[in-house]
Nucleic acid binder design. Structure first.
Lengths: 249, 249
DNA sequence: CTCCACCCTTGATCAGGATCAAGGTTTGTT
DNA sequence: AACAAACCTTGATCCTGATCAAGGGTGGAG
């Protein structure tokens, strides 16, 4: 593991179908063929339910385009987002019969689906796949733990700043690293309500805190969703995180 | 995966060293020998630090006895627990150089340690190991997501009830299932402060809510740490969780 | 073009949990 | 036995974020 090249990169599904082959140079041909045969694509409209908690899980999938959420709802309607699914993220747990969480499309979403049974067979027969899935699961676990710190201990303002920073980081991964001094621009893919579900707040508090960050010049707004970050460090200072955050692997 | 027998059961390390052999009937002898050679045991006293965030990780380990915590601390001292480690739980991320979280012994703790490099080699060479680790990581991810719902949306009282229920469930796993109607007894392995770190509360609020549950007859206390649950359903009703919780795999 | 649905903002008030403070209990040490 | 240190409980007060309420965009459907 570590920096060793993954042989089958499930994340590459984001650029299906070509990428599988590109990364699978070291795969056995029959494994590749299996993967290709299993694949199918599905599309969802904004707000559409992809899976309801309790549904039978026929598929596992990889997000190709768009944004989806994983969430849990209590009987009285309180809901908490427990996963934000961006392109290349994986949906579904191999070995699980019934979905445990609601999966909802936030924007237009395309999934690359694999039928569950044969995919489980692939995991069992192809060590590289389970190794890759393990790495992805551990990354998600780290993200979940950072999220737990946010939910349990951060103030509303810190939560909002953290969310903007997280989205900036994930969309910034594409851009060149030297673009650090020019102002960053980020489109929030979420409504105020969805952000509230993410952060364990109400939508009113989200709105107020965004207004507050704007008033204090930490961010600028262009429309409701387009955020301009004039000084990334100023934003990061609002998150409550270690200033040298992210160095520890 | 699913209900398929794991070949190497890392969890079995809790009953080291015999259990490895019992479960490893299908292992290649040299793999078994590798596991045995790598093992060493370490002990820690209550309150002792096992790892500090930022430390070099020389080892991965499995908890054999005792209770430890994974936690994150912000610069100003706010801390959030992000993992509760009971016997059979795994410590350390293969492939990671520096620890990302503080690991602290809560009670007397014994770890079964494996040197990191050779263990990573074992993962790469033994598919059953990465498959088992994947399953364990996915279990932890589910636990983390339930925890996120707790942190983000539950009231203080619900949080306390949930914590007691979680501890009851984990210690009850051992007992016979027909013991459901007799009163359950649980020893809280945590101080009020540690519980507060778990739940995203202050220790005063933890104390008050425990008193509240006691006043309302949901629990009885015998000393500070020994909890008697006269009616498990009454406790579960306080958690805010779905009444039929736990059915969904 | 108009209307409606959805999304967002802001204000006023409320309440749950944090904070500050004091004292009690248990455990282990000399 | 006396004491100290840790741990726990309870009270008083404060403050952050929830709740209740009203109104302002904005974009798509007819």
């Amino acid at each position: 593991m570590g920096d060793q090249q993954p042989i089958v990169d499930l994340k590459s599904c984001a650029e299906c179908p070509i990428r599988h082959k590109a990364v699978c140079a070291r795969c056995e041909p029959h494994e590749l063929a299996d993967l290709e045969r299993m694949k199918s694509y599905r599309s969802y409209r904004p707000g559409e339910a992809i899976v309801w908690a309790g549904d039978d899980m026929e598929f596992v999938a990889s997000v190709v385009t768009g944004v989806a959420t994983l969430s849990q709802t209590m009987e009285d309607g309180r809901t908490q987002m427990v996963g934000l699914l961006l392109p290349s993220d994986f949906i579904g747990r191999p070995g699980r019969e019934k979905a445990k969480y609601d999966v909802t499309a936030v924007s237009d979403v395309t999934l690359c689906c694999f039928r569950k049974r044969p995919f489980e067979g692939l995991i069992a027969s192809t060590p590289a796949v389970s190794q890759r899935l393990l790495e992805m699961a551990l990354d998600e676990l780290d993200a979940a733990r950072e999220w737990m710190l946010l939910l349990g201990r951060k103030t509303a303002r810190e939560k909002i700043a953290s969310l903007i920073a997280i989205i900036a980081r994930r969309s910034e991964a594409v851009k060149s690293p030297e673009a650090r001094d020019t102002a960053l621009e980020v489109d929030l893919p979420l409504t105020r309500e969805t952000m509230a579900d993410y952060l364990g707040l109400t939508l009113e508090t989200v709105s107020r805190q965004i207004s507050g960050l704007k008033r204090d010049g930490v961010i600028q707004l262009n429309g409701k969703r387009h955020v301009i970050i004039p000084d990334l460090d100023a934003l990061l200072a609002e998150t409550g995180d270690d200033s040298d955050g992210g160095f520890l692997s």
